[in-house]
Amino acid sequence: MALITKFTVKHLLGLGTKTVQTVATRSAHKKGETQSNSYIIIRPDKHNYSEIVDVMYDSYFRDEPIVRCLGVGKMPNSVLEEEIVRELSQGLSLIAKCKYDGCIVGGAINCGACPWDPDVMDKFACTLSNQKMRQLFQFWAYIQRAPNLWNLTCTRKIFEISHLFVLPDERNKGLASQLIKKSIETGADCGFTCIRVDASTAKTAKICEKIGMKLVYEIPYCSYLGTNQRPVIEPHPTETSVKTYVTTPHFPKKK
Rank of each mutant, 00 (worst) to 15 (best):
I4S: 10
I4R: 08
T5H: 10
T8K: 08
T8Q: 07
H11P: 07
L13E: 03
G16V: 08
T17I: 14
T17D: 14
V23K: 09
T25P: 09
S27W: 14
S27K: 15
A28K: 08
A28P: 01
A28D: 06
H29A: 13
K30M: 13
S36C: 02
I40T: 04
I40R: 05
I41R: 02
P44C: 13
K46Q: 14
E51G: 08
Y60E: 01
F61A: 06
P65H: 08
V67A: 10
C69W: 12
C69N: 12
G71S: 06
V72L: 02
M75N: 14
P76N: 09
P76H: 09
L80I: 10
E81I: 03
E83D: 14
R86P: 03
S93N: 03
I95L: 01
A96R: 02
Y100N: 05
C103F: 14
I104N: 04
I104M: 01
V105S: 02
N110W: 04
N110S: 06
N110G: 01
C111L: 11
A113F: 08
C114G: 11
P115H: 06
D119N: 13
V120T: 13
A125M: 01
L128H: 04
Q131K: 11
Q131P: 08
K132C: 09
K132V: 11
K132T: 10
Q135N: 08
A141N: 09
A141F: 11
Q144K: 15
R145L: 13
A146P: 06
L149D: 05
L149Q: 00
N151S: 15
T153R: 11
K157P: 04
K157T: 07
I158W: 01
F159M: 02
I161F: 00
S162A: 01
H163C: 01
L164E: 01
F165M: 06
V166D: 03
P168H: 06
D169R: 14
E170T: 09
S177H: 04
I180H: 00
S183Y: 01
I184T: 00
I184N: 05
T186A: 02
G187S: 00
D189P: 05
G191V: 05
F192E: 03
T193P: 06
C194R: 03
I195C: 07
V197N: 11
A205D: 04
A205F: 06
K206V: 13
I207D: 03
E209R: 09
K210V: 08
K210S: 05
I211D: 06
I211L: 09
V216C: 00
Y217Q: 02
I219F: 12
I219H: 14
P220G: 04
P220Y: 03
P220K: 09
Y221R: 01
N228S: 10
V232R: 12
E234V: 14
E234F: 13
E234D: 13
H236F: 10
T238G: 15
S241G: 11
S241Q: 13
T244P: 00
T247V: 02
